[in-house]
Each structure stands twice: as structure tokens, then as C-alpha cells.
Write a protein that binds this DNA or RNA. Sequence first.
DNA 1: ATTTCGCTTAATATTAACTTAATATACGCT
DNA 2: AGCGTATATTAAGTTAATATTAAGCGAAAT
Lengths: 223, 223
Amino acid sequence: MRILLVEDESQLLNAYVKGLKQDGYAIDTAGDGASAVELCEINTYDLVVLDINLPKLNGIEVLKQVRTLNKSVKIIIVSANRSIEQRIEGLDLGANDYLTKPFDFQELRARIRALLRRDFISQPKVLTINDFNIDLNLHQITYQGKMILLTLKEYTILTYLIQNRERIISSEELLEKCWNDEADPFSEAMRVHIYALRKKIQEATQRDDVIQTVKGVGYRFNP
Amino acid sequence: MRILLVEDESQLLNAYVKGLKQDGYAIDTAGDGASAVELCEINTYDLVVLDINLPKLNGIEVLKQVRTLNKSVKIIIVSANRSIEQRIEGLDLGANDYLTKPFDFQELRARIRALLRRDFISQPKVLTINDFNIDLNLHQITYQGKMILLTLKEYTILTYLIQNRERIISSEELLEKCWNDEADPFSEAMRVHIYALRKKIQEATQRDDVIQTVKGVGYRFNP
DNA sequence: ATTTCGCTTAATATTAACTTAATATACGCT
DNA sequence: AGCGTATATTAAGTTAATATTAAGCGAAAT
């Protein structure tokens, strides 16, 4: 899952980035409205967190343009007071949620998860699929109760595959959703991660068909 | 665990702060209602002790606003007479407990622990996990009966990890829960404490995997 | 006033995660 | 079958996160 954070207070921004990366999202950031719109032109985000008080380009204008570029992206508006929230609602600009500053990071986290889960097959915080148990709060994946210790990137990839297990995920999609802007599109890095993942999964489950390869198409999770 | 004390008699306040810090809580204080609300806007407390007789902003108003800002915070109301207590109950403002002045500090201490323990896995005053024994009354942690001598901060960190041992705790969360307002969010202090803790634990247990690092995610207690 | 102790700061070292790159294997196609 | 392309495997290199160490500071204790 890929998220764009638009916020001009860089200290706040850094805190959010760190927190959300831990949840396995690929994060890009923009410090002003113009670069936010630019990034949305280049990339496809699943969600944008947009502080409405921005330099260079009025926040409401940014919202309009981002929505025009991508009808399905989820947008969370952050504003300093509730009246702005009401004004945006009134304008019907298609924001999906609102947060009034100041707010707790856990609150933001919960709202992001709530918005993104609608895209998934079904999404409680803990899901059990056959012998697998995925706890999105704890970043923990177990097989028959046995914990599979994964790195951040491995966890990101595997949960993406799991949450979209009814589809075959192309490597392009995986790269798009699990990496941010800085990712090299020709990199083989993903394959190495898939390899490491399979190795750990094989160790825990004694099975080697959990991540299936569909040649020329992509990967899929086979529980 | 992080607590806000709201009380205008500064002598009383200081006594509470001292006593509760000894119990390993991170304490912030406010002398009037306005600054209490302000602090609640900025920080996420686990518990607020609120004296209802306050200058600047009526105590009941403070209670309302604090509750609006954070639905899950525990609130203990301190008042001079029981009728106020009944009035608040009648208004259904979501206080979790009441104390009538004058009261014994030990009474306050016990009620705080009682309210906070509901968040934990299960929380008697003494818990035994494998060879570890944690006595929250005495602030003593032993391994196979052998006492591990810890400083206050070490004790605070370790008990937080122990009481949330089913989760991986990020350094942000640890900082939020074990330090108060004055903590520098970019400080490396926590790492130094973790190091000291590990050293003492290693000495006592001969094991060096008791506090596990999950890189990019956080720490966890592994009994 | 001096010492001790707990906490923090800051500089440096170490380690694990991630990426790169080179080589090997597997698969589908004619 | 044999060729070409896609993917797997391995090892080595780079980067970012965390660990370690020593020094400094201030509050409490002697």
C-alpha cells in the first residue's frame, strides 16, 4: 500500500513517516501543494494525507486536483479547525475522512487502516487463513502458532500478497505498492526478498508452494 | 504509562509527583484547567487525575473536553465533597473513579494501578513469568529468586515491555509511555537504557535474548 | 563542599536489512 | 530438443538502524 503525506511541518512529517513505515506502507512526502500534485501525476497512491494549510498552492485546490487525477484514491484531510472541515464537506470535494489538529498518531493510523481495508478482501486487524495467522497490529505472522520472524520489507510484501490473495500480483504492482519513489524499477531487489520469504516460510511450514510463481504474470499467496 | 496530574495546590502536587514517579509513571502536571486541556491536546495520557476545584476553567468543563479529546483515557476525579461526585455521575461525563479529599496517597496509588491494569494482559501486583518475578509494589524484579537491581528508568522500561509482552513495542511508543513532556523525541537516551538493562539482565540470567530487537519495528520482552 | 548516582548527550562501532550484480536454473515456445 | 526469456539463487556491497562507549551534567546523599 502506498501513501503520500502532504505536510509542511517537517518534524511532524518525519514522525508520521517513521510510524507508518513500520506499518509496512510505502511512503512518499510533499512539503507543499505544488509538489503534492506533481507526485500524484507521476505515481498512483492508495491514500493521501493532506494538511489543508499549505504554502504555494491552496489546500482545497490541491484536493480538487488530486481527486481529478485519481478518482479512487482515499484522501484524509488534516486541518487546524473544524470549520474548514465543514467547508470542504460542503463543497463536496470527495475527501474520505477528516482529522482536526492536534490528533494522536494512533488515531491517524486507525483511520488509514479503516479506509484502506475497504479495498481488501475483508480486513479485520487479525486474520486467520488456514494455519496462517496475520496480526496487523503486532506485525506478526504465525503458522500453527509458530512465529515467523520477518523483516519489515518481507512483512510488507507478504501481507500485500495475503490481502490480495484472490489475485495474481505482478512484480510491477508489488514494486509499486511496497516501494516508494526511490525504488529502481529495474531492480532485482524484490526477487531477493521473495526468495528470503520463501525460505523462512519453508522453514516454518515445510511447504514450498506458499508463494506461487505464475510465469510472465506474477506471484500469488496460496494458503 | 503516562499520567497527567491537575491540581492547584502546588505543595500537594509535588508530593504526588514524587510518589508516582517512584512507581515508574511518566508524570506531567497542570495547575489550572486551561493548561490541563492544552496538555491533553498535545499528549496522549493513559490517566488523568483531575481536581475539580480549579481556577480559570471549571473542572467539569475540563473533564468534558479531556474526554472529548481522548475517549480511552482513564480519569480520576478529586473533589472536596461527595455531592460533586454525584453531580458528575448524574451528568454521565465518563469519569472512571472518584476520590474525596482528604485522602491518603496510598489510596490514590492503589486506584491508579487498578484503573491502569485493565489495559494489561492481566495484572496482579506480583507477576511471575517463567523464571522472572515482578513485584510492582516493591519495584523488584528477580530471576530465579535472584534480585536484579534496576534504576527507576530501567524499571519503567522493563515493566512496560513485560506488561505488553505479546506485542512488539516501537521506540516511539516506549518514549511516549515512559517519558514525560521534557523528553527529546530524537534522543538516543532510550537506547542507552536498553543497553544497561540488557547488561544487568545478562548478568543475572546468562541470557542475552531477553529483550529482543526487531529492526525497524521495535523491542519485545522474551521471557 | 564533595562525592555518588542516575540520566542524557554525543561520537563511534557494529550489525542487520536491503540492494546490486553476477551466475544458475526453470519454463515455454517453435 | 534447443533457444530465449523469466525467474531463482548466491555472494558481495551499501545503507540505515541500533549498540556501544565515554564523557558531562545536575540532583540527591554524605
